[in-house]
Computed example of a mutant assay.
Amino acid sequence: MNALEIKNIDGTAPHGHGVVWMNVPYAEASGRALHLQIIWPPIEDWFTPSQYPTVVFVQGSGWGKQELGQWLLALAEFARRGYVVAIVEHRPSDVAPFPAQVEDLRSAVRFLRENAGQYRIDADRIALWGDSSGGHLAVLTTVTDGVAGAPGVHDDEPLGVRAVVDFYGPSDLSLMPEDPACVQLLGGIDPRQHPDTAAPAAASTHIRPATEQALPPFLVMHGSDDEVVPFEQSVVLGDALVAAGHRIELYRLDGAGHGAGGFFSEPVMDIVDQFLKENLEQ
């Protein structure tokens, strides 16, 4: 009779994966529930109430219905670096036009701060990150933060965001190529024909001198060959921030298109990680 062979391996290695809390409701607006997908990094000791720096990510969608799983694998891999990542669902622009999406992002951050203990979030170390229209919302939410009466802002209590990452987001819709998504965001108004109406959705409208407005640092990445949101949109944002004395790092990814190319490659993620570590330190 053959004897059972038992093989031994080291069982003391650190816990190798995190957790995704799926479809966490954070608000209700326009008759629908809005959700978060919250990703934890690998946690070695589940019984210690450890807290982590947190990235609130806004998935690009032309401000329409979002495919929240589009960058889920990449963001889960990024969470391994020691971050909680919360992917935000906002109202589509065909349900509620601008500034509903800013309102939703603000609500999501407030929910995460209020429930920081449950989701292992360090409420003093929160960053915003978005791609395409999500980058636009991350930037716009930051530059209007704490300004009562600004689009989507109904109080003057700051969110406390300490860093912003913008991947190929538009910054001034009146300077964009013809795009039905921009028109729909503004409730049917073409921003190129009505720049005054589009101005509240432009980041530069709200950027004031650093002596009057405290803004966190910005990291902006944009493809040189972006056929949807021209690279110049990030130059417009960068020029406005620099002129006002704010901090920005702008990278051009040579040969990259709109969301195509090395945006979630390891070298780029290393840059994002280093930027966040520098600006989310205690």
Rank of each mutant, 00 (worst) to 15 (best):
G134Y: 03
F231N: 01
Y168R: 08
D254M: 06
E178G: 09
G160Q: 12
A163F: 11
L215G: 11
A3T: 12
V220K: 10
P41A: 07
A27M: 10
D131I: 01
H15A: 14
V183D: 04
S224F: 02
Y251C: 00
V24H: 05
R192E: 05
S107F: 00
S50Y: 07
K277P: 00
F275Q: 11
E5D: 09
A148W: 05
A33L: 10
D122H: 11
D10W: 01
V153F: 01
R125I: 14
G187P: 10
V147S: 03
S30W: 11
P41G: 01
S61Q: 01
E232N: 13
L140T: 04
T197E: 09
T197K: 05
V102D: 01
Y52K: 05
W71Y: 13
V161W: 10
M1Q: 02
S174A: 15
I38H: 06
Q233E: 14
L73D: 14
E89P: 07
E227I: 01
S93V: 10
A29F: 13
V236G: 00
Q51C: 12
E77P: 00
V95S: 03
G134S: 05
Q233I: 01
D155F: 00
V242I: 15
W40I: 00
A163P: 12
V147H: 06
D10A: 10
Y119A: 02
Q118A: 13
G152M: 03
K7T: 11
R162K: 15
E44Y: 00
L241C: 08
A74P: 08
N8D: 11
V84E: 04
G223R: 08
A256L: 07
F57Q: 00
D273S: 13
G69A: 14
V143M: 07
Q282I: 11
V143Q: 10
G255V: 08
S133W: 11
I43C: 07
S50I: 13
P195V: 05
L237K: 07
A13K: 13
V139M: 08
V272C: 02
L237Y: 06
Q213F: 14
L159E: 03
Q233K: 06
C182Q: 06
S174Y: 06
A198F: 11
D10M: 00
I207A: 12
W63H: 09
D94F: 08
M221E: 07
V109Y: 01
H194E: 15
I207D: 02
P14D: 07
A240I: 14
L276F: 07
V55P: 00
G117Q: 15
S174L: 11
S234K: 01
G18V: 03
I248N: 01
M269T: 14
T12C: 03
E212T: 12
Q66G: 05
I9K: 03
G18A: 05
L250F: 10
A96T: 12
V84R: 14
A243H: 11
D270L: 11
N8V: 15
L215F: 09
E178Q: 11
S107K: 09
T54C: 08
F57N: 06
E212L: 14
A163S: 10
H154Y: 09
S132G: 06
P42F: 01
T205N: 04
T48M: 12
A181N: 15
R162V: 10
G262A: 10
T48H: 14
Q51M: 14
L72Y: 01
V109C: 02
G64Y: 08
D45E: 15
G11R: 12
P25T: 13
D10E: 14
Q70E: 09
P49D: 15
A214F: 07
Y251E: 02
P267R: 13
E232L: 06
